[in-house]
């Protein structure tokens, strides 16, 4: 277990717990969750489904309250910056807004002028090759393009930290690989602090500086792995022997967890 960071911390979660009050009694979704994410670090969380990893992300985002413990996001020098922006698995880009209006949404909510926010949005659409789809509505573009829009909506908002909740989970395998590379490229350019939820171990090892492994019911941190693969990474990275080593080492523990979680399903 390695939860030390060299750089100043950006996200700090201290003994966070989440208990839901259900009709069948209290249900513990997350327990004793401690994690510190450094400035500019990319941390990926993996775990079996139902391990509470999405709950953790939503608590960091402030979309759900913590039942115990505390979560902090360190603010930078610019007080106008939003603390976090979430990229949702279901894209969650608004069907009633055009692509460019979606990307500019966060800026619009902060009262930034129309000309300025559309400029920023156009710049980001350009960076992911979507400039010519600016005036399209979401139902007119593919799933991969929708998720690109969702990602640049978060980036255009320029938050302190980027929170990604299985952003590529709904995409087909090929589109997924293309978007992983794109994510790596953009992250290399921006060096945002990222907390990344995924159920794909390969994705976690490929993208993350560290991989957090969670157990199911209650969701708890089992282990944290430092991934010392060279950057910049790309799909080629997955061919390195070191990549296979990491994957095998983490998979050992993850597979046991997945089996245990499946047996616990009612």
């Amino acid at each position: 277990m390695d939860d030390t960071v060299a750089t100043p911390w950006k996200i700090r979660a201290q003994s966070v717990g989440k208990v839901y009050d259900t009709a069948a009694g209290p249900f513990t979704a997350v327990e004793d969750f401690d994690l510190t994410v450094g400035d500019g670090e990319f941390v990926a969380i993996v775990g079996p489904s139902g391990c509470g990893k999405s709950t953790v992300l939503r608590m960091v985002a402030g979309l759900e309250d913590v039942s115990s413990g505390r979560i902090e996001i360190a603010r930078g020098s610019d007080p106008g910056k939003p603390t976090n922006s979430v990229v949702f698995q279901e894209y969650a880009i608004f069907p009633w807004k055009t692509v460019i209006e979606n990307v500019a949404f966060g800026l619009q909510m902060r009262g930034i002028s129309r000309a300025e926010r559309l400029d920023v949005a156009r710049h980001w659409l350009d960076r992911v090759g979507l400039a010519k789809f600016a005036e399209y509505y979401p139902h007119q573009i593919s799933g991969g393009m929708k998720q690109r829009v969702s990602i640049v909506r978060a980036l255009a908002n320029d938050p302190e930290v980027l929170l990604m909740d299985e952003p590529l989970g709904a995409l087909d395998a090929q589109t997924r690989v293309v978007l992983q590379e794109e994510l790596l490229r953009i992250w290399e350019e921006t060096r945002k602090t990222v907390l990344y939820i995924t159920h794909s171990l390969e994705e976690a090892v490929l993208l993350g500086d560290r991989v957090v492994l969670m157990s199911a019911q209650p969701g708890r941190i089992l282990d944290i792995y430092q991934i010392d693969l060279p950057r910049p990474r790309s799909f080629e990275t997955t061919n390195l022997p070191a990549f296979a080593d990491y994957r095998a080492r983490i998979w050992d523990k993850l597979s046991a967890e997945v089996t245990r979680a499946m047996e616990m399903q009612p």
Binding site: G62, L63, P82, V86, F94, W96, M109, R110
Partner: peptide, 26 residues
């Protein structure tokens, strides 16, 4: 879909902005 409400709030929409940009068009 609740995810639109979550997205609206996460991107800084207040109650009235949420009504105008998410709830009414939705």
């Amino acid at each position: 879909d609740p995810v639109y409400l979550m997205a609206g709030r996460n991107y800084g929409a207040g109650p009235w902005q949420l009504l105008r940009h998410v709830i009414l068009p939705g």
